[in-house]
Simulated assay, not measured.
Amino acid sequence: MESKTTKKVTRGRPVCEIKQAEQKAKLIFSAKQLLNIKSYSQITIRDIASEASINSAMIKYYFGGKENLFVELIQSIADEQFSQFEDLGEHKKPVYLFIRRFGEILQSHPGIVHLLSEEVLNKTTPLARAFMAAFPARVSKFLPPLIQQETGISDTKKAKLAAFQLITLLVSPYILKTLRQQAWQIDDTEIQGEAWAKDLYRHFIYGLKESNTNEVES
């Protein structure tokens, strides 16, 4: 008499760890691509699965849901992008290089701007908290010392306020895109590239050094 064997049903879940990692990476990449063209609230689990050509059940299996998937996306982008800031302290003009590199992140990752303006500001969701930890919190740690290094400012509180001002100058043209384009007729090319970075850098550094000099003299 033949013995009956029971086959394990995987429901599309790959047993191989490498295959699992590949599927997770593919889902995260697909979410990133969609976020560049759609708002977070408009993106569905089905959209992500379709873009990745993977069963939508895998999103819950790997991440627990859409929000956790985007939390991992935020962390992966932050880890990848912030690695390029590690050597700034070795340069003569670290603040200028920061402006250039941070501007490139804003240009090449419009989805990050979408998340910031639509899902992070004035919200306290897990996604918003993850974004704050991955981006603003990191910048608040390493940018003030760079400003102190380049300007000679000794007051750490003043350096922190200056760093916040600089981030505001960099990010606001992207968050206020509709206002910038429709009311001021300033297109994207005018807030990008070397010329914009140099102009922003000169105004920021000059004003900061002038303020610091006046305080010392008084």
Results as ranks from 00 to 15, higher is better:
I112K: 04
K60A: 12
E22M: 08
T189Y: 13
K141F: 15
F29C: 04
K8A: 05
A31C: 05
K66L: 09
S53E: 14
E72C: 08
A163I: 02
I175F: 02
L161Y: 06
A128M: 12
I186S: 10
A31L: 06
Q165I: 04
Q81D: 10
F63W: 00
G64K: 09
S211G: 14
Q81P: 01
T168D: 11
R202F: 11
A134L: 07
T124C: 14
T168L: 12
V120P: 02
V139G: 01
A31I: 01
V216T: 10
I186K: 11
G111P: 06
Q75N: 15
Y40N: 07
D188F: 09
N212W: 01
S108L: 13
L34N: 02
K26H: 04
S172V: 03
F142H: 00
I99G: 05
T168F: 15
L35D: 06
H109W: 12
N55T: 06
T151E: 07
Y206N: 13
E104Y: 05
C16A: 13
A21G: 11
E17S: 13
G65E: 00
Q192L: 09
Q84A: 15
R138E: 04
A25Y: 13
A31D: 05
T125P: 08
S3L: 04
I153T: 05
K141G: 02
G89S: 11
Q84L: 10
A197K: 03
P136W: 13
G193E: 12
E210H: 08
F142C: 12
V171A: 07
A162E: 04
P126S: 13
S3F: 12
L121T: 09
I43H: 06
F131K: 11
F29H: 14
G193I: 01
N55W: 10
V171T: 09
W196K: 06
F164P: 00
T6A: 04
S39E: 05
A25I: 01
N68S: 10
R129P: 07
A130D: 12
R180K: 13
S218W: 05
I99K: 02
A197C: 11
F70M: 08
I43K: 01
G111N: 05
D79P: 02
H109R: 14
Y201D: 10
F131H: 13
E215R: 04
I99F: 02
F204K: 01
G152W: 03
L200F: 06
L73T: 08
E150K: 05
K92N: 07
K160E: 09
T189R: 15
I153N: 10
K92P: 03
Q149L: 14
A137R: 09
K60V: 12
Q182A: 14
K7L: 12
K209F: 03
A159Y: 07
L34Q: 10
Q42I: 04
Q23C: 08
W196H: 15
K19N: 15
P110A: 13
S108K: 15
Q149M: 15
Q182V: 03
D87P: 03
M58W: 00
E118V: 00
I54T: 10
F98Q: 12
H109F: 13
F98G: 03
S41P: 00
G152V: 14
L176P: 00
S53Q: 09
V139R: 00
S83P: 00
D79G: 11
G89R: 10
F63H: 02
S56D: 07
Q185G: 02
E217F: 10
Q20G: 08
S76Q: 11
Y62F: 01
Q107P: 09
A197D: 05
A49V: 15
L127P: 13
V9M: 14
S3I: 08
